[in-house]
Design a binder for these strands. Structure first.
Lengths: 196, 196
DNA sequence: AAGGCTCACTAACGCTCGTTCGTCGTGGCA
DNA sequence: TGCCACGACGAACGAGCGTTAGTGAGCCTT
């Protein structure tokens, strides 16, 4: 199998990774399978030895990412903690993921709508679950007098999207590490809800 | 010209408006000219009597929107005002525009990258100008001791994207008016920068 | 009544897309 | 050494894309 030119061994994960890079850069509909093949130095039909379809690539990416976001949340957020601590941890891990998994975040936020049913409904349900969980933390904090916002839903939207946007500008080569950004952003989240 | 079935009089603005709706819903690459034509109850080639090309539609949408955002900013932000007042007004008008011009905002944020040069460079320059103007307001506030953030750039990103995201969920039929959302979000912006 | 202009239409173009099929060279294993 | 499974490939597909050209019907002006 040794070749003159170094070519990556093709396998499902490598194909998925190349698709991830290009989907994030140009969008799902803006990316052709021929471009994914070219990035892997392979002809287009060869991709089909390692994937089901173009749509399957997108579904797999969105599926894994949304599942990981939910897992993150439930792993770090302890319902026994005070609301401020829950919110800090939830925002922190959410930002951290968007900084360390930029491509996944960009694809999910841009192209989830391109999924066909039933995948679209399933993925949207997951996103809603995360949203409601975050909103519940805020509502609890307001009820406990720890937070001060007119509308927990509004604050939840604001915090979520603020965190998501980190994927749009973060760079591993930048001045700030993912941890540092996560720290500052979780501070922003607490300020938004008026935590002392 | 009177017909049995009511059909809108076709003209450049009507075509642009239909394109705006579909681009916002499915993305630029996800929308076919045949779908725009169908929405207008017309055959695809008829569109060319009122537009240059599909790419022109996108360029016009992004051009008008980015210009309006900059105009908004300079119209309401008075450099003589204290930083907190400048930030409040800047965030307020930015949110208000994203609530009242949802489709435009969605297209700009999703599909500006699909513009060809030189349009892409021009549009990105405009967005950068707005970003730097907002960042300068924050930096001024920090220098004056009115705001307290580690990094004005980080706070600027957070505030901008928080405001932008309003376009993703706002509904004119919802419980809150655009004005009410703008008020609450500009409050969030001031909290993020630690204004008292 | 005649003329010209506007504009929606049919037809067709060249191209690219995602996908399928059958072939053939290759490496691992008996 | 012979066999077999794997997988990269060329060729080809039907469909859809954005776009262009030419035609003809309807309105406004004269």
């Amino acid at each position: 199998m040794s070749r003159v030119s170094t070519r990556l061994a093709l396998n499902p994960e490598v194909v998925l990774d190349a698709a991830l890079t290009l989907f994030a850069e140009r969008g799902y509909h803006g990316t052709a399978l021929s471009e994914i093949a070219e990035a892997l130095q392979v002809r287009t039909p060869s991709l089909y030895n390692h994937m089901g379809s173009k749509h399957d690539l997108l579904r797999t990416i969105v599926d894994r990412t949304t599942a990981a976001v939910l897992a993150d949340f439930h792993r770090v957020v302890d319902p026994a903690d005070p609301p401020a601590e829950q919110l800090r941890k939830a925002a922190r891990v959410y930002v951290h993921r968007h900084a360390t998994h930029r491509r996944e975040a960009l694809v999910v936020n841009r192209d989830t709508g391109s999924l066909a049913e039933p995948a679209f409904g399933e993925m949207q349900a997951r996103r809603r679950e995360h949203e409601h969980a975050l909103r519940a933390v805020i509502a609890d904090g307001v009820a406990a007098g720890a937070f001060h916002v007119e509308s927990p839903a509004l604050a939840s939207f604001a915090i979520r999207e603020m965190c998501v946007s980190v994927a749009r500008w973060f760079s591993p080569q930048g001045a700030l590490t993912a941890d540092a950004v996560a720290d500052q952003y979780s501070g922003f989240a607490l300020r938004i809800v008026g935590a002392p």
